[in-house]
């Protein structure tokens, strides 16, 4: 029963809460959506935490995502042992980077009074969860080889079965508890995204790449406004 809740109920709940929560917060509570950077209060130690943490977690996250999305390609890649080794070593290295970064960030958070002043309970919960997640991840990588392959062959089908709304749980139920904890941890993190600072991941400023540097916003259609015929045409100002 507990298994059923953790591996069927929780994922759906997490997905729904996360989607609705993000859309709601983005549209209605835009003022709360921020990276909440504390670099302005402490800038030196942050470097040794923030940079490894972010780079590491991006690589690890997209690694997991790829294995989930294209399990066959991953298996094909892994069919040659050297390539599997390269993949595992890379993933482990970046996992370690996340751990180091996260440890540095947590150390900084607890020892810098200024950073503590902008720390919420949710930040600590989130950092605790992430820490557990990373430690479990590294443990799994070392203890249950080779994750890159069995994720593709066992877990990816489970996740896809969730997507297809006909959960296939036999494989997950049989997994060792560490891996189960890692999976539950992942769903929990997804669940709490809208209530934490993690939401800043969804507003990563990629549109900056294509945008012209300068932005001028007209509250009125400046040419039409002098023309009595068009002055009432319903054009909403773009900035609110």
């Amino acid at each position: 029963m507990l298994n059923l809740f953790l591996f069927v109920g929780l994922p759906y709940m997490a997905f729904i809460v996360c989607t609705v929560g993000i859309v709601y917060r983005y549209r209605r509570k835009g003022f709360t959506v921020s990276s909440l950077s504390s670099q302005f209060l402490e800038g030196k130690e942050l470097f040794w935490g923030s940079v490894p943490f972010h780079i590491g977690i991006l690589v690890v996250f997209f690694g997991h995502l790829t294995t989930f999305l294209v399990p066959r390609a991953t298996l094909a890649w892994n069919s040659i042992p050297v390539r599997l080794l390269i993949l595992e070593v890379t993933a482990f290295t970046f996992g370690l980077t996340v751990l180091i970064g996260l440890a540095a960030l947590m150390y900084r958070r607890f020892t810098t009074p200024r950073v503590r002043a902008v720390t919420t309970g949710m930040d600590i919960v989130l950092e605790g969860l992430l820490l557990a997640q990373v430690v479990f991840g590294l443990w799994i990588a070392l203890g249950y080889r080779w994750g890159a392959s069995w994720f593709a062959s066992d877990l990816s089908p489970y996740l896809w079965s969730l997507v297809k709304l006909s959960p296939e749980t036999t494989a997950v139920f049989a997994l060792p508890w560490v891996i189960k904890a890692h999976i539950v941890g992942a769903f929990t993190i997804v669940l709490i995204i809208p209530f934490t600072r993690l939401i800043h991941f969804f507003v990563a400023p990629l549109n900056y790449i294509a945008r012209p540097y300068q932005q001028v916003i007209w509250n009125w259609d400046r040419r039409a406004i002098r023309d009595p015929g068009t002055a009432w045409s319903p054009t909403q100002p773009r900035n609110n």
Partner: peptide
């Protein structure tokens, strides 16, 4: 984020607080 803009009508430069993400 494109949160900062110049107002066309009078040239005042403003930061949209709902769009700023603290980068």
């Amino acid at each position: 984020s494109g949160a900062i803009y110049k107002r066309g009508e009078d040239g005042i430069v403003l930061i949209n607080q709902s769009v700023c993400r603290g980068w």
